[in-house]
Protein backbone atom coordinates (compact mmCIF):
# COMPACT_ATOMS: atom_id res chain seq x y z
CA UNK A 1 0.00 0.00 0.00
CA UNK A 2 1.26 3.47 -0.88
CA UNK A 3 1.23 6.05 1.88
CA UNK A 4 1.30 9.82 1.58
CA UNK A 5 2.12 10.26 5.25
CA UNK A 6 3.92 7.95 7.63
CA UNK A 7 5.49 8.55 11.01
CA UNK A 8 7.47 6.41 13.41
CA UNK A 9 8.35 7.21 17.01
CA UNK A 10 7.14 10.78 16.67
CA UNK A 11 7.35 12.74 19.93
CA UNK A 12 6.61 16.29 20.94
CA UNK A 13 7.24 17.49 24.46
CA UNK A 14 6.22 20.83 25.91
CA UNK A 15 8.55 21.08 28.87
CA UNK A 16 7.43 18.11 30.97
CA UNK A 17 4.21 17.41 29.09
CA UNK A 18 4.39 14.73 26.41
CA UNK A 19 1.84 15.74 23.79
CA UNK A 20 3.07 13.03 21.43
CA UNK A 21 4.90 10.03 22.78
CA UNK A 22 6.39 7.79 20.11
CA UNK A 23 3.43 8.02 17.77
CA UNK A 24 3.27 6.11 14.51
CA UNK A 25 0.78 6.70 11.71
CA UNK A 26 0.23 5.46 8.17
CA UNK A 27 -2.11 7.43 5.93
CA UNK A 28 -2.77 5.56 2.66
CA UNK A 29 -2.96 7.54 -0.56
CA UNK A 30 -6.53 8.24 -1.65
CA UNK A 31 -8.00 7.55 1.77
CA UNK A 32 -10.07 9.64 4.13
CA UNK A 33 -8.22 9.05 7.36
CA UNK A 34 -10.10 9.83 10.55
CA UNK A 35 -7.98 10.76 13.53
CA UNK A 36 -9.87 9.92 16.69
CA UNK A 37 -8.91 10.66 20.26
CA UNK A 38 -9.85 12.35 23.49
CA UNK A 39 -9.08 15.99 24.21
CA UNK A 40 -5.32 16.26 24.66
CA UNK A 41 -4.68 12.93 22.96
CA UNK A 42 -2.30 14.67 20.53
CA UNK A 43 -4.42 15.07 17.37
CA UNK A 44 -3.80 18.78 16.86
CA UNK A 45 -0.16 18.47 17.88
CA UNK A 46 0.33 15.80 15.22
CA UNK A 47 -1.30 18.06 12.64
CA UNK A 48 0.87 21.01 13.71
CA UNK A 49 3.98 18.89 13.26
CA UNK A 50 3.12 17.64 9.79
CA UNK A 51 2.17 21.18 8.72
CA UNK A 52 5.60 22.41 9.79
CA UNK A 53 4.24 24.72 12.48
CA UNK A 54 6.24 22.93 15.13
CA UNK A 55 9.25 20.63 15.20
CA UNK A 56 9.18 17.13 16.66
CA UNK A 57 11.18 16.59 19.84
CA UNK A 58 12.10 13.12 18.58
CA UNK A 59 11.26 10.83 15.70
CA UNK A 60 10.39 11.82 12.19
CA UNK A 61 7.60 11.66 9.64
CA UNK A 62 7.63 11.17 5.91
CA UNK A 63 5.44 13.20 3.60
CA UNK A 64 5.28 11.97 0.03
CA UNK A 65 8.58 10.18 0.48
CA UNK A 66 10.37 13.20 1.97
CA UNK A 67 11.58 12.88 5.53
CA UNK A 68 10.80 15.71 7.93
CA UNK A 69 14.52 16.19 8.49
CA UNK A 70 15.20 16.71 4.75
CA UNK A 71 15.37 20.22 3.35
CA UNK A 72 13.05 19.09 0.56
CA UNK A 73 10.19 18.64 3.04
CA UNK A 74 9.01 22.16 2.14
CA UNK A 75 8.54 20.98 -1.46
CA UNK A 76 6.50 17.99 -0.27
CA UNK A 77 4.47 20.34 1.89
CA UNK A 78 3.45 22.27 -1.21
CA UNK A 79 1.40 19.21 -2.11
CA UNK A 80 -0.73 19.63 0.98
CA UNK A 81 -3.36 22.05 2.17
CA UNK A 82 -4.58 22.37 5.72
CA UNK A 83 -7.07 24.00 8.02
CA UNK A 84 -5.59 23.82 11.51
CA UNK A 85 -7.95 24.60 14.40
CA UNK A 86 -9.54 27.85 13.18
CA UNK A 87 -9.70 28.83 9.50
CA UNK A 88 -6.76 31.09 8.62
CA UNK A 89 -8.36 34.00 6.79
CA UNK A 90 -7.86 37.76 6.66
CA UNK A 91 -11.02 39.26 8.17
CA UNK A 92 -10.81 42.51 6.20
CA UNK A 93 -10.77 40.73 2.86
CA UNK A 94 -13.58 39.17 0.86
CA UNK A 95 -13.60 35.45 0.09
CA UNK A 96 -12.18 36.11 -3.36
CA UNK A 97 -9.45 38.41 -2.04
CA UNK A 98 -8.45 35.83 0.56
CA UNK A 99 -8.05 33.14 -2.09
CA UNK A 100 -6.25 35.62 -4.34
CA UNK A 101 -3.83 36.29 -1.48
CA UNK A 102 -3.12 32.56 -1.20
CA UNK A 103 -2.58 32.37 -4.98
CA UNK A 104 0.05 35.10 -4.65
CA UNK A 105 1.70 33.23 -1.77
CA UNK A 106 1.86 30.11 -3.88
CA UNK A 107 3.08 32.06 -6.90
CA UNK A 108 0.36 30.70 -9.16
CA UNK A 109 0.53 32.23 -12.64
CA UNK A 110 -3.13 33.21 -12.94
CA UNK A 111 -6.24 33.67 -10.84
CA UNK A 112 -8.38 31.53 -13.15
CA UNK A 113 -9.30 28.86 -10.59
CA UNK A 114 -10.69 31.22 -7.97
CA UNK A 115 -14.30 31.23 -9.16
CA UNK A 116 -14.22 27.42 -9.36
CA UNK A 117 -12.99 27.22 -5.77
CA UNK A 118 -15.69 29.63 -4.65
CA UNK A 119 -18.35 27.50 -6.38
CA UNK A 120 -16.89 24.28 -4.97
CA UNK A 121 -17.11 25.62 -1.44
CA UNK A 122 -20.45 27.36 -1.95
CA UNK A 123 -19.07 30.88 -1.49
CA UNK A 124 -19.74 32.16 -5.00
CA UNK A 125 -22.46 34.57 -3.85
CA UNK A 126 -20.59 36.27 -1.03
CA UNK A 127 -19.68 39.27 -3.22
CA UNK A 128 -18.06 42.17 -1.36
CA UNK A 129 -18.86 40.80 2.09
CA UNK A 130 -15.67 40.59 4.12
CA UNK A 131 -14.70 37.45 6.02
CA UNK A 132 -15.26 39.35 9.26
CA UNK A 133 -19.00 39.13 8.60
CA UNK A 134 -19.03 35.46 7.58
CA UNK A 135 -20.74 32.81 9.66
CA UNK A 136 -18.54 30.13 11.20
CA UNK A 137 -19.55 27.67 8.49
CA UNK A 138 -18.67 30.15 5.75
CA UNK A 139 -15.30 30.83 7.35
CA UNK A 140 -14.69 27.11 7.61
CA UNK A 141 -15.48 26.67 3.93
CA UNK A 142 -13.30 29.65 3.04
CA UNK A 143 -10.49 28.05 5.02
CA UNK A 144 -10.89 24.91 2.93
CA UNK A 145 -11.02 26.95 -0.29
CA UNK A 146 -7.69 28.56 0.69
CA UNK A 147 -6.26 25.16 1.54
CA UNK A 148 -7.34 23.94 -1.92
CA UNK A 149 -5.77 26.91 -3.72
CA UNK A 150 -2.61 25.05 -4.62
CA UNK A 151 -4.56 22.00 -5.92
CA UNK A 152 -3.18 19.82 -3.12
CA UNK A 153 -3.01 16.03 -3.15
CA UNK A 154 -3.33 15.88 0.61
CA UNK A 155 -5.80 17.86 2.68
CA UNK A 156 -5.54 18.09 6.48
CA UNK A 157 -8.63 19.22 8.37
CA UNK A 158 -8.58 19.75 12.11
CA UNK A 159 -12.10 19.47 13.53
CA UNK A 160 -13.80 20.70 10.34
CA UNK A 161 -17.31 20.25 11.74
CA UNK A 162 -16.62 22.14 14.97
CA UNK A 163 -19.29 24.72 15.66
CA UNK A 164 -21.25 24.00 12.49
CA UNK A 165 -25.01 23.60 12.45
CA UNK A 166 -26.49 20.31 11.17
CA UNK A 167 -26.87 21.69 7.66
CA UNK A 168 -23.28 22.93 7.71
CA UNK A 169 -22.08 19.51 8.87
CA UNK A 170 -23.87 17.80 5.97
CA UNK A 171 -22.39 20.32 3.51
CA UNK A 172 -18.92 19.79 4.94
CA UNK A 173 -19.32 16.01 4.66
CA UNK A 174 -20.43 16.25 1.05
CA UNK A 175 -17.55 18.56 0.23
CA UNK A 176 -14.99 16.18 1.75
CA UNK A 177 -16.47 13.22 -0.11
CA UNK A 178 -16.50 15.15 -3.40
CA UNK A 179 -12.88 16.20 -2.98
CA UNK A 180 -11.87 12.64 -2.25
CA UNK A 181 -13.89 11.00 -5.01
CA UNK A 182 -13.68 13.57 -7.79
CA UNK A 183 -10.20 14.96 -7.19
CA UNK A 184 -8.62 11.90 -5.53
CA UNK A 185 -7.46 14.08 -2.65
CA UNK A 186 -6.25 12.20 0.41
CA UNK A 187 -7.91 13.70 3.48
CA UNK A 188 -6.77 13.53 7.08
CA UNK A 189 -9.52 14.61 9.47
CA UNK A 190 -9.41 14.92 13.20
CA UNK A 191 -12.85 14.98 14.70
CA UNK A 192 -14.76 14.59 17.93
CA UNK A 193 -17.99 13.88 16.12
CA UNK A 194 -17.47 10.16 15.68
CA UNK A 195 -20.84 9.47 14.11
CA UNK A 196 -20.11 12.08 11.45
CA UNK A 197 -16.60 10.77 10.95
CA UNK A 198 -17.92 7.27 10.41
CA UNK A 199 -19.88 8.54 7.40
CA UNK A 200 -16.79 9.62 5.49
CA UNK A 201 -13.69 7.88 6.81
CA UNK A 202 -12.10 4.97 4.98
CA UNK A 203 -9.40 4.52 7.62
CA UNK A 204 -9.15 5.34 11.31
CA UNK A 205 -6.34 6.06 13.70
CA UNK A 206 -7.15 5.95 17.41
CA UNK A 207 -4.89 8.13 19.55
CA UNK A 208 -4.50 8.13 23.29
CA UNK A 209 -1.92 9.91 25.45
CA UNK A 210 0.16 10.80 22.42
CA UNK A 211 0.33 7.26 21.08
CA UNK A 212 -1.41 5.47 18.24
CA UNK A 213 -3.52 2.81 19.93
CA UNK A 214 -4.83 1.25 16.73
CA UNK A 215 -5.00 1.93 13.01
CA UNK A 216 -7.81 0.18 11.25
CA UNK A 217 -9.56 0.42 7.90
CA UNK A 218 -13.26 1.24 7.84
CA UNK A 219 -13.89 -2.21 6.34
CA UNK A 220 -12.14 -3.99 9.20
CA UNK A 221 -13.88 -1.75 11.68
CA UNK A 222 -17.21 -2.53 10.08
CA UNK A 223 -16.52 -6.22 10.52
CA UNK A 224 -15.49 -5.62 14.13
CA UNK A 225 -18.60 -3.55 14.76
CA UNK A 226 -20.94 -5.76 12.74
CA UNK A 227 -24.42 -6.45 14.04
CA UNK A 228 -24.50 -9.92 15.57
CA UNK A 229 -26.16 -12.14 18.13
CA UNK A 230 -23.87 -13.42 20.87
CA UNK A 231 -24.94 -16.87 22.05
CA UNK A 232 -24.02 -18.74 25.20
CA UNK A 233 -24.51 -22.42 24.49
CA UNK A 234 -23.61 -25.70 26.15
CA UNK A 235 -21.09 -26.65 23.38
CA UNK A 236 -20.05 -24.85 20.25
CA UNK A 237 -19.41 -27.94 18.14
CA UNK A 238 -23.13 -28.56 17.66
CA UNK A 239 -23.68 -24.85 17.00
CA UNK A 240 -21.09 -24.83 14.23
CA UNK A 241 -22.77 -27.82 12.53
CA UNK A 242 -26.22 -26.20 12.71
CA UNK A 243 -24.98 -22.80 11.51
CA UNK A 244 -23.10 -24.39 8.61
CA UNK A 245 -26.30 -26.17 7.59
CA UNK A 246 -28.25 -22.90 7.83
CA UNK A 247 -25.57 -21.03 5.87
CA UNK A 248 -24.99 -18.39 8.53
CA UNK A 249 -21.70 -16.62 9.22
CA UNK A 250 -20.34 -17.00 12.73
CA UNK A 251 -17.32 -16.61 14.94
CA UNK A 252 -16.52 -19.01 17.76
CA UNK A 253 -15.34 -17.02 20.77
CA UNK A 254 -14.84 -19.92 23.20
CA UNK A 255 -16.14 -23.32 24.15
CA UNK A 256 -19.53 -21.94 25.12
CA UNK A 257 -19.72 -18.61 23.31
CA UNK A 258 -20.09 -17.55 19.68
CA UNK A 259 -21.16 -14.57 17.57
CA UNK A 260 -23.67 -15.21 14.78
CA UNK A 261 -23.85 -12.63 11.98
CA UNK A 262 -26.67 -11.77 9.63
CA UNK A 263 -30.44 -12.21 10.01
CA UNK A 264 -30.97 -15.03 12.47
CA UNK A 265 -34.34 -16.80 12.72
CA UNK A 266 -34.05 -17.46 16.40
CA UNK A 267 -36.84 -20.05 16.94
CA UNK A 268 -35.54 -22.19 14.08
CA UNK A 269 -32.00 -21.92 15.38
CA UNK A 270 -33.04 -22.88 18.92
CA UNK A 271 -35.08 -25.88 17.63
CA UNK A 272 -32.19 -27.05 15.46
CA UNK A 273 -29.77 -26.77 18.37
CA UNK A 274 -32.20 -28.61 20.60
CA UNK A 275 -32.31 -31.48 18.09
CA UNK A 276 -28.49 -31.59 18.26
CA UNK A 277 -28.69 -31.78 22.04
CA UNK A 278 -27.26 -28.33 22.51
CA UNK A 279 -28.78 -25.96 25.05
CA UNK A 280 -29.03 -22.22 24.54
CA UNK A 281 -28.05 -20.61 27.86
CA UNK A 282 -28.31 -16.99 26.83
CA UNK A 283 -28.27 -14.55 23.95
CA UNK A 284 -27.54 -10.83 23.46
CA UNK A 285 -27.73 -8.57 20.44
CA UNK A 286 -24.47 -6.75 19.66
CA UNK A 287 -24.44 -3.67 17.48
CA UNK A 288 -21.23 -1.73 18.17
CA UNK A 289 -20.94 1.82 16.84
CA UNK A 290 -17.72 3.69 16.20
CA UNK A 291 -18.34 5.47 19.47
CA UNK A 292 -18.71 2.28 21.49
CA UNK A 293 -15.73 0.78 19.65
CA UNK A 294 -13.72 3.84 20.64
CA UNK A 295 -14.90 3.68 24.23
CA UNK A 296 -14.06 0.01 24.54
CA UNK A 297 -10.69 0.58 22.90
CA UNK A 298 -9.80 3.47 25.20
CA UNK A 299 -11.22 1.78 28.24
CA UNK A 300 -14.14 4.19 28.68
CA UNK A 301 -13.96 6.62 31.52
CA UNK A 302 -13.40 10.01 30.00
CA UNK A 303 -15.49 11.52 27.28
CA UNK A 304 -14.32 11.70 23.70
Amino acid sequence: MEYCLTAEGLSKHYRHFKALNGLSIHVPKGSIYGLVGRNGAGKTTLIRLICGLQRPTAGEYTLYGRKSTDKEITEARRRMGAVVETPSVYPDMTAEENIRQQYLLLGLPSFDGISELLCLTGLENTGKKTARHFSLGMRQRLGIAIALAGAPDFLVLDEPANGLDPEGIVEMRELILRLNRERQITVLISSHILDELSKVATHYGFLDHGRMVREVSARDLEIACRKCVRLQISHTGSLARVLDQMGLEYKILGETEADVYGEVHLSRLVMALSQEGCEVLGMQEHNESLESYFMSLMGGGDHV
Binding site: C51, G52, L53, T74, E75, R77, R78, M80, G81, A82, V84, E85, T86, P87, S88, V89, Y90, P91, Q102, L105, L106, I146, A147, G150
Partner: peptide, 18 residues
Protein backbone atom coordinates in the same frame (compact mmCIF):
# COMPACT_ATOMS: atom_id res chain seq x y z
CA UNK B 1 0.32 40.49 14.77
CA UNK B 2 -2.53 39.83 12.35
CA UNK B 3 -0.52 36.95 10.91
CA UNK B 4 -0.66 35.27 14.31
CA UNK B 5 -4.06 36.38 15.55
CA UNK B 6 -5.83 35.26 12.35
CA UNK B 7 -3.58 32.23 11.89
CA UNK B 8 -2.52 33.24 8.39
CA UNK B 9 1.11 32.60 9.29
CA UNK B 10 0.13 28.92 9.03
CA UNK B 11 -0.89 29.37 5.39
CA UNK B 12 2.61 30.56 4.56
CA UNK B 13 4.31 27.67 6.32
CA UNK B 14 1.96 25.07 4.88
CA UNK B 15 2.50 26.60 1.43
CA UNK B 16 6.12 25.48 1.80
CA UNK B 17 7.85 28.79 2.53
CA UNK B 18 10.87 28.60 4.80
Amino acid sequence: GTEYSEGTMRNKLIAGHT
